[in-house]
Structure formats: C-alpha cells, structure tokens
C-alpha cells in the first residue's frame, strides 16, 4: 500500500517521454505501469499471507485477543470513563501534531528571519529540544516541574512534551522546504506586484509543502509511536494496555502482536493520507502527460 505512491510517478514519466516526442518504450507505458502495480499487490498479498501463516503456526489464543480487542482499540472507555487504547493514542498524536506544526512554522520563520532575536530564540529552542531525549523532557515536565510548583496533568504534560520535541524537528523540515523553493519564484511574484503575503501563501507555501510533506509524514508516523511515552504518566494508551493485559494473563505474544498490528494499521492510514497530499501538492511538478494517465487509484 505504501509503495503505491511511486506508481503514478512511473506512469507520468513514461507518458511525458512520449509527449516530448522521445522514443517510446518497448511496451506501452500504461501496460508497464499496470504490470508493475499488479506485481506490487501480489507481493504484498504474499508477504501478508506469510505473516498470517506465521501467526497461525504460533498457536496463539485468538479468543483472548478477540476479548481484549475492544479495549485495545479504545471502543470501550476505561474504568474511570476516559478514552483509552488506540483512540487515546490517536488523540494524543493528533493534538500534538497540530501544536507541533504551529510551533514548527513559527520556529522555521524565526530561523529564516533577519531579526537577530527571533533567529536566536528559534535556534535556541530547536537546539535544546533536539538535543535532549524525549523521555527526559516528558519526565521533567511531569515529575520535575511539580517540585517548583507547576503541576500538570499526565495528558497535558504528554502533549506539551511531544509538541515541543517534534516541533523542533519539524521546524528544520519546514525550513529546508522553504529554502528549496528557487529564489526566482519569489522574484517573479514580486515583479508582478504581488503583496508579500500573497506571494508567500500562493507561490512559496504550496511549492515548499510538496517538499515538506514526505519528511513531515515520517515524523508524524514516528510521533504516533512515541506517543506511547504518555503511558509513563498513567495514561492507558495502546502500548500500556497491551502490556498490562499481557502481564496479567501471560499472553505476551498475543497482546504485543495485536498492539503492533494496530500501530501498523494506523501508520498505514498516515501513509495513505501522505499519498493523497503528495498528489495534491505535486500537481504540475510531477509532470502529467498531456494525455493524462488513466485512473490510478490503488
């Protein structure tokens, strides 16, 4: 599924070759791309079947998995009526993503700013939060701050730590994307008399986003998994639940595999979103042939 992203590029490259009057490939480009896609699906199916067969051979207690699955997924609320499991994981990741994105944009602008104070604040922040472990940041916010009178809840602490940590990494990603847009683009916009904000919003941002999306999505997938750190603060997220069920029933293999598969499934959703965003912002750049390539939904 993740590999699907590359197929359109192949199709486009092929049809563009044709378009520019260069030599056609030995087979029709559409066919080649179709074959490629079929083989990708086949290989994926085979690997999934192998994995499934492996699980079957382990003689796992699927009944127990079925019994605990609603809790792992978070369909049921925790005993104290709070969200738990995968739903909590997604909630924490989603909130942190939004906050990290806002922090990162400001930091990236600070790093590109001519204002020395803004530049210094941005570099200081990025250095500090990239240079210290996420785990230590989480613990400082949750366990150490109360010592000086700042008491934050587990969820709040987790969100703050994840946002600040990932914001620092994301800022670098955004900065590199902004810097990679050729200077001629802003000049052309200015020469047309476009106000700065229109040039930034309509010309620079969309082109930078095309470059930012792949690494940013990688960061968010990574954040999805790092969100398990909030279990340190007594939140019943996916990883925590899997471990506690495993411990109490000694079904470690079942529970940890189930948790792993749920994380994987969520990551795949992220990857699908990434594919869509890449297509959206790749318009024109990933050149489509004039005879637009056919439907390519995987």
């Amino acid at each position: 599924m993740a590999l699907d992203a590359r197929i359109p590029a192949r199709e486009d490259a092929a049809s563009r070759l044709l378009d520019k009057g260069m030599q056609p490939q030995s087979t029709a480009p559409g066919q080649t791309a179709e074959h490629f896609r079929q083989k990708v699906w086949l290989t994926w199916a085979l690997l999934c079947a192998l994995l499934g067969a492996g699980f079957y051979e382990l003689h796992l207690d699927f009944g127990y998995v079925g019994q605990k699955l609603p809790f792992l997924l978070g369909i049921r609320l925790s005993p104290d009526g709070f969200i738990q499991g995968a739903v909590l994981t997604v909630f924490v990741t989603g909130c942190s993503m939004i906050c990290a994105w806002m922090i990162a944009v400001l930091t990236a602008l600070g790093r590109l700013s001519r204002n020395p104070v803004a530049f210094a604040i941005a570099t200081f922040y990025a250095s500090l939060f990239r240079g210290t472990p996420l785990m230590v940041q989480v613990l400082i916010i949750y366990l150490a701050l109360p010592q000086v009178g700042v008491v934050l809840g587990g969820l709040t602490s987790g969100l703050i730590a994840l946002s600040l940590n990932y914001g620092a990494y994301l800022a670098e990603t955004i900065r590199s994307g902004l810097m990679a847009v050729p200077a001629g683009q802003r000049e052309a916009a200015m020469a047309l008399g476009l106000p700065r904000w229109v040039a930034s919003w309509k010309i620079i941002a969309p082109q930078a986003l095309r470059l930012i999306i792949p690494p940013a999505c990688s960061l968010f997938v990574s954040m999805l998994k790092d969100s398990s750190l909030v279990s340190l603060m007594g939140l019943w997220e996916l990883n925590f639940l899997a471990q506690s069920y495993a411990r109490s029933s000694y079904h470690y293999m079942e529970m940890l595999l189930a948790a792993a598969l749920i994380y994987w499934g969520l990551s795949i959703v992220f990857e699908l979103v990434q594919v869509r965003l890449e297509r959206r912002f790749g318009r024109g750049v990933v050149a489509r042939g004039r005879h637009a390539a056919g439907p390519r939904n995987g």
């Binding site: 001629g184 683009q185 000049e187 052309a188 916009a189 020469a191 082109q207 095309r210 318009r283 750049v285």
Partner: peptide, 18 residues
C-alpha cells in the same frame, strides 16, 4: 511593479499553477 512587466532569463513560471 504594477506598471512594469518583467520577463526573466529562466522564465520563472509558477510550476504548481496552470
């Protein structure tokens, strides 16, 4: 800039726009 049109050596068209 509103009254002065400019054409660049490297075109500088906006690649993401038609």
């Amino acid at each position: 800039r509103r009254e002065v049109g400019m054409v660049f050596q490297s075109f500088n068209l906006f690649p993401h726009l038609t």
